[in-house]
């Protein structure tokens, strides 16, 4: 019978959960100190200040008619951009860099599961994105307070929670593409193009050409972030005629539908990304 060696070392291997916490701690530190974090922070502040300046200078009625209208236009229109940018900055090359930059060689040869590394990195990237989101939230609330006094409507809290769910799903997708490609730039470019252009294009085409609800598009589900700030909540389907035979159809996901779409994207992309990372070889 083969004798298995028993460790003489006093060190006892930590549980997977404890190792996840270790990965979160050091990767968050790595993200937080990185130049890209400060670039993203500057972009977010610049976007916030730009909208603040435009609203302050032009005082558009669409913004200043009510607190909900203000939040819908200020937050609802721009937060998705901030979220996608954060996911690209933190998640776009999170896994591909382990291969392309060879950082994986430092970590993977240790007594740690790849799933632990993936989950830890995902949560660290999520925390980094949430900090950026909080900065944009602070700018939004600051503006709202300036125009409408202290206190924001409860719909804003709901919208904030939905935006957290959106970050979770977009980050899952960014990690999936990052696992799929070994090149950092390819992973980042694919995520950007998909999130900023392809999804919107598919949504528009499906709604107008096929006249079908685009329930399978992530950005469609994420529209609940803005829609919850519109009173009353927009109807599920509207169609405005622009002459026969052309008309513009608009679909709006209900809150449960939007949440299900976003969570479904997260579950599928997270499992797929993790499976790919588990199987990918450091060749």
């Amino acid at each position: 019978m083969k004798a298995q060696h028993t460790s003489k070392s006093a060190a006892k291997l930590p549980s997977d959960a404890a190792q996840v916490l270790t990965i979160i701690k050091y990767f968050f530190l790595d993200y937080f100190r990185s130049r890209r974090f400060f670039v993203l922070l500057l972009i977010t502040i610049a976007v916030g200040l730009l909208i603040t300046g435009v609203v302050g200078y032009y005082r558009p009625q669409s913004f200043l008619s009510s607190d909900l209208a203000f939040l819908s236009n200020f937050w609802g229109e721009w937060v998705s951009f901030v979220i996608v940018l954060s996911a690209v900055f933190f998640g776009g090359d999170a896994i591909s860099s382990e291969f392309q930059n060879k950082t994986g060689y430092f970590l993977v040869g240790n007594p740690i599961r790849r799933s632990t590394i993936y989950i830890g990195k995902y949560i660290a990237a999520l925390l980094g994105s949430i900090i950026i989101l909080l900065v944009f939230t602070a700018i939004t609330v600051g503006n709202s307070t300036y125009y409408f006094g202290f206190g924001v409507p409860y719909e804003f809290f709901e919208s904030f929670l939905f935006s957290i769910v959106y970050i979770i799903s977009v980050m899952g997708l960014a990690f999936l593409f990052s696992s799929l490609f070994k090149s950092n730039s390819v992973a980042i470019i694919v995520t950007v193009i998909l999130m900023l252009f392809v999804f919107s294009l598919i949504e528009t085409l499906v709604a107008n050409l096929v006249v079908t609800e685009p329930w399978f598009v992530l950005t469609y589900g994420s529209e609940i972030i803005r829609n919850i700030l519109i009173s009353p909540y927009p109807p599920a389907h509207t169609s405005s005629a622009h002459g026969v035979p052309f008309s513009i159809a608009t679909y709006n996901a209900s809150v449960p539908e939007g949440l299900i779409i976003m969570l479904a994207y997260f579950v599928v992309s997270f499992i797929a990304g993790l499976t790919i990372f588990e199987r990918k070889e450091f060749t």
Binding site: D30, S34, K102, Y105, F106, G109, N110
Partner: peptide, 13 residues
């Protein structure tokens, strides 16, 4: 303990 090829280390640490 293992050292395979020449790993890169997370640059901000």
């Amino acid at each position: 303990g293992a050292l395979i090829e020449t790993p890169e280390i997370y640059p901000s640490l």
